[in-house]
Design a protein around this nucleic acid. Structure first.
Lengths: 129, 129, 129, 129
DNA sequence: GTGGTCTAGACCACG
DNA sequence: GTGGTCTAGACCACA
């Protein structure tokens, strides 16, 4: 289910954060759904539970999940409220990457194609819901 | 000129790499132009020269600058050759960020606007405005 | 095990890179095997850990090893993909050396003998004999 | 006549040494022929005379040229005597490169082809004369 | 424990 | 003057 690259330079816990974020964004994990327990996931991936914990804590900090003591970790509601601060961060990152892509010779139309491709994450049109 | 965040989790030399890359891409530093000397920049930023060295060396590895022993560091020509491997990396990163942007409520048209804005790095670019 | 010439014009870290590359190519260090830790090797060779680091990082850039933060440095798999760019560099170097060998009086048959001797790096290799 | 890459990592004087060595080996400069004067060559290549000097001194050390005070620099006779020490050095270097070539996927037959190609440097068969 | 970053300061090589 | 290498020693991040 998770394809972690144990050989990547990127820390395992960061890879986990990215994967989980992706699954949440694509609603594979739906709002208020419970995530796998730390221990279960650790055993599953044969990874140190501390590493899983760290990933979950990071996701909590970023607002993607919430944790209930003694119950587990759950997917946050993606409330319609726009977190402008986070949006600015993401857009800033995006600008840098877009410029780099241009520098490397990518054409604007290619990028627009990427956007079109990703427009409908699950089949509908629910970017915000 | 450079705003480094010494407290950031991101290593100083990486921040430097990013900043310099950006300046090169935006042609603030033009091809074959000499970059600030290691020592000069180190003194400027009150940072250890070794750290600057590391950043410059990384930029050299990435093909953005070249280094001449007794002379200095210089901006590489952006040869038209498409480095497909690097392009793939960048596009991959872009996809993740775009999805995250959608999740945060950004609309596709907003992203396309960003692309349009950045389309012509030569002509209408305002870094400080 | 490693014979470094601290007086050589060639930097220590480059000598290290060459030695380690050789050991990897000859499968003295096998794929996915862990290399000596930075500190251990540094103590062994009575050399500064930073210098070892530099060598390991260079080997990583060249694709011979990969590095895991809390774990160590490991030998990369030699994927069958032909890196034509690197091959060209090596062949170019080889041509120069072959010409020089001819100039010094070495006969073509001698060189072919060398090639035959090295043909099978797995089977009949004696590093110390 | 000389194509120096002023942007290469390799020091200019080393490039000069290589080029001149090549020209001598290929008998473009014949035994006892006078080489261009330091000043002339420096002007020609718009390079610091010190750099030329350094290259000539290096070639002298390696036995490729000899210098007559007040007269100039001249190509050495390639006497039939085999400099076994130098040959060993070169063969050693060659072995390492050949192994690396194998590791990169080059086939023995390819290397033999290179040798065949270089066998006759100027049209005859005079490897040693 | 591992690798990674950073500093302070010395010395060498190049042009 | 420039970049490049190396050391000694400190501190952080990861698993």
């Amino acid at each position: 289910m998770f394809e972690l690259d144990l050989r990547s330079r990127k820390p395992i816990y960061e890879q986990l954060v990215d994967k989980l974020k992706e699954l949440i964004i694509n609603e594979v994990f739906k709002p208020d759904e419970q995530l796998p327990s730390v221990r279960a996931l650790a055993q599953d991936l044969t990874i140190n539970p501390n590493t899983i914990q760290k990933a979950y804590r990071e996701l909590e900090n970023q607002g993607f999940i919430y944790s209930l003591k003694g119950k587990g970790n759950f997917v946050s509601q993606n409330n319609g409220v726009m977190d402008t601060q986070k949006i600015d961060l993401v857009l800033n990152e995006l600008e840098k990457l877009i410029q780099e892509a241009f520098y490397l010779g990518v054409k604007p139309s290619d990028l627009i194609a990427v956007i079109e491709k990703l427009k409908a994450p699950k089949g509908g049109d629910e970017y915000y819901d």
